[in-house]
Design a binder for these strands. Sequence first.
DNA 1: TATAATCCCTACCATACGGATAGGGAATTA
DNA 2: TAATTCCCTATCCGTATGGTAGGGATTATA
Lengths: 177, 177
Amino acid sequence: MKISAKGEYALQAVNYLAHKHGQGYIQLKEIALHERIPLKFLEQILTALKNSGILKSRSGPGGGYYLSRPPSEVTVAQVLQSMDLSASPVDCLNECNEFECGKNNERDLCDLRWLWKDIREETVKILESTTFQDIRERKARATRSGETTGSTEGRAEESSRSDKKVHGTVRPIINRR
Amino acid sequence: MKISAKGEYALQAVNYLAHKHGQGYIQLKEIALHERIPLKFLEQILTALKNSGILKSRSGPGGGYYLSRPPSEVTVAQVLQSMDLSASPVDCLNECNEFECGKNNERDLCDLRWLWKDIREETVKILESTTFQDIRERKARATRSGETTGSTEGRAEESSRSDKKVHGTVRPIINRR
DNA sequence: TATAATCCCTACCATACGGATAGGGAATTA
DNA sequence: TAATTCCCTATCCGTATGGTAGGGATTATA
Ligand code: FES
Ligand code: FES
C-alpha cells in the first residue's frame, strides 16, 4: 500500500513550486537541492509534469519551471495522475484491466472487489479534494499552533536568500532508498 | 498504491475458509486449487496466518486449516496485519520510522504528512470495519441482484463435490504475476 | 556569432524486493 | 510402518523501481 518515490517526489516538487508561485522561473537545481531529490530523477519527473500541463518551463539562462495554474487549482490527484500512478489497490479495477479480475474462479468476480473499490473511492476523494493551497494552509495552521516545524515564510525567505551560497557549499543530494 | 499478492492471497484464502467455516479441517491443497494460488507460496501465508492466531491447523491425514473464530469476528485488517502489511502510504508514518520523516528539510516535518495520515485513516477505517461475514453478505446481495457471478451456494457445493475429480484432472495452478 | 546556462530526451544501469520454488522434517492417523 | 498432511527455512529469480549518464535543443546575453 505504498506510494512510489516518484509520486512523493512529484508532489514535493509541485509543492515547492506552489510556494514560489508568482515568482517567475524556478530552476530544476533549486528544487532538487531544497527538496533533496536526485537531480536527474527529478528532471524526468518535471518533464512529465510539464507534458501533462501542470508545469510550464523555459530553457536557457534564467529559465526554469513554474506552476501553470494557481495552487488552489492544482490537486494532488492531478499530479499523481500525471505520473501514471493509480490510486487503486488492485489493477483489475482499472477498467482496461477488468478482464483480469476474477480470472481465478472462472465465472465469478473476485469477492473482494467491492472492498478495493471502496478503498479506492475514499482515497480518490481525498486526493482530488486536496489542492496545494490546502497543503499550504494546513501547514500554516500547524505552524501557528507550535508544531515541530519552521514557519512557511521563514522557509521561503531562507531559500531565496541563500540559494547562491547553498549552491556553492555543495549541499549533497542524498538518495532516499 | 498497490496491495501485494501476498496480501490478496491471504485474504482470498481466509475468505475461502470463512465460507467453509464449521466444516472441519480444510486442506492447503484444496484452497490453493480453488483460489488458484501457488501451493508453496500459500503454505507460507497460511503459516503466518496461523502463527498470528487467525487460523488453527492440524497435520496428518484429514488435517488442514480452519478459521479459529467465526467469520463475523475476523476483519480484513487483522489478516493484513498478520502479513506485516501496512496500510500506510508512506513508511514514515509508522511510528518506529518517524525519525525518517522530514529528514529532507532538516527541521520541518514533510508538508504532505497529514495528507498521508488522512488516507491511512480512511483506509484503516474500511479495513477494520470489514469482516469476512460482511464479504459473504455483500456477495450474496450482489448475486441476488443478478451480477455477472455465480451463486454463493452453487460455488460452495460445486467445490466440495468435485474436489476429488478436480484433484485428479490436474487443474493447473497458474502464477498471477 | 559565440558562449554559457538551462531544459529536453532517451538509453542505460543496479539492485532490492516480491513472488515463487524446493526439499527435508515433524506431526498425526491408521 | 507407511502414508498424509502441515511446518520450516533456504534459495532462486525476474522485474519494477529508483537512479545515472550524456548528448541535444533552446534561450539569453554580450
Ligand atoms: S481479482 Fe479483481 S478484485 Fe480481486
Ligand atoms: S517524509 Fe514523512 S510524510 Fe513526507
